[in-house]
Design a protein around this nucleic acid. Structure first.
Lengths: 261, 261
DNA sequence: GAGTGGTCTAGACCACTAA
DNA sequence: TAGTGGTCTAGACCACTCC
């Protein structure tokens, strides 16, 4: 690593530092390598440790770095493309890969908020299955799948229940959902942060940025299920491929802007 | 606002502070109101200003607060749902709303990176249109629309060019694109930060978190265009509604996790 | 125990906004 | 000019990992 000085520029030091670090990382480091420790980096660039950390915060948000307490700061692997489009990805019974693991299930009266989101009466019974999505053995997302009991009651009875499904409400709900005909889905994505329980499922500290994917599944003119998933924003790139094309490595620097109208 | 003390808890102060502030905001403040200033809040909670700011940073990332230099910290409006699904949203000529405004256009040989993403030879001519997406008069996103010249050359000649389109390369490219038959689109979403130029187009400081939407448009078995859009993560909720259903107010607190298998 | 990142402090100064 | 958020400093201590 070169550069021992920071130029006197009108932009904030931490931002300029980030730029320098991006260049350094891209040119002189590769995935998994550890950067010099924060105190040394700060000294090398002639800034306070807090200022250096401000720059590292940015780079971590961008998914370029991973910081591990007691270990050091590592160059992060490129983000993993995670398919979320097509109902096959999240809907039970269709995914051949064992991508989701159930971690719990509660059946309770709907809170007013949830009832409104599901289009049912407040207080009516709703099953909530909690799952984790594993990609390459890593927890990449958590999901709360809310299913109105009314949507299940309309289904033909599940026959031949095994003792296992009897004892496992999550699996029972999922098994029943397999029979539900989905007519459409509506989805939204926004930025959020993982709170305590979610964060621990993702094996990340609280406050970790996540991409919150909310999916309404429609069936029989109503909302058959509502899925709220939180994907690790640092390591995930959500893909909505309807027609799988060439794999894209994102273009880093946009073209300069020419004269405009 | 109540609470003048922070309980002694094992979690970080800033995180507990965030929790307290979330509750306070939801219960005692409404959109557009200004919070007490940082120095006063810090004193009231008995923490250093830097610690308070750490909590506010989180809330700003979540889109709950907006901080304006010289003004104060305001309660943010709920995020705006921005449709990005269906090619009608971004594709020229189809949107009846004047959602996009061109700000520039360059035609240049493709960089190796861009060439690979487009599936064309490095150095071949690519047109890049730069646009801003306006929602309710606000700049919500920037876009770089990359179009290989080869994809345009395959089209029937645009007839009756007005003097206006002659003088405006961006509009000319967009006009030609209207005639292009799109067979499919493939899309990805990930978290990023706005750098200098992008940030200024979005009227935000550098480092602003954005949702980066990359869309491949397929035509004639090739990539007809590649769109890279950056949406303000603080104010945008991207919607991918294929079948428009009920408007959802997202469920804030996930259900508690029951026993699992 | 040594080394790492994570948290927290108390203070300073700057850039911006509004009266 | 007064008040706001934004940046930066120098230092302290803690929690964690590894040897």
């Amino acid at each position: 690593m070169g550069q021992n000085q920071l130029a006197a520029v009108p932009e904030p030091k931490y931002w300029h530092l980030r730029t320098v670090l991006v260049r350094t990382i891209d040119q002189e480091f590769s995935t998994g390598q550890v950067l010099p420790n924060e105190r040394e980096l700060a000294a090398r660039f002639g800034v306070a440790r807090a200022t250096l950390r401000q720059a590292l915060d940015q780079l971590e948000l961008e998914g370029r770095l991973v910081r591990r307490r007691g270990i050091g700061t590592l160059i992060a692997a490129p983000r993993v493309g995670v398919p979320v489009s097509r109902r096959e990805e999240g809907w039970p019974g269709v995914s051949r890969s064992q991508a989701w693991r159930e971690v719990g299930c509660v059946s309770a009266p709907a809170t007013p908020q949830l009832a409104q989101a599901l289009g049912v009466e407040a207080g009516s019974l709703v099953h909530t299955v909690r799952r984790i999505r594993l990609v390459q053995g890593q927890a990449m997302a958590t999901e709360s799948l809310h299913v109105p009991d009314a949507a299940l009651r309309a289904l033909p009875r599940v026959v031949g229940r095994s003792a296992q499904t009897e004892a496992d409400p999550a699996r029972l709900v999922l098994r029943q959902l397999e029979r539900l005909v989905i007519e459409g889905e509506s989805r939204s994505v926004e930025l959020g942060v993982a709170e305590a329980e979610e964060a621990s499922l993702l094996e990340r500290p609280p406050g970790t940025p996540v991409l919150v994917v909310t999916t309404q599944y429609a069936g029989a003119g109503k909302i058959a299920a509502l899925s709220v998933s939180t994907y690790r924003a640092d390591t995930c790139k959500l893909t909505f491929g309807e027609t799988g094309l060439v794999e894209v490595t994102p273009v880093q620097e946009p073209q300069p802007v020419g004269a405009a109208s």
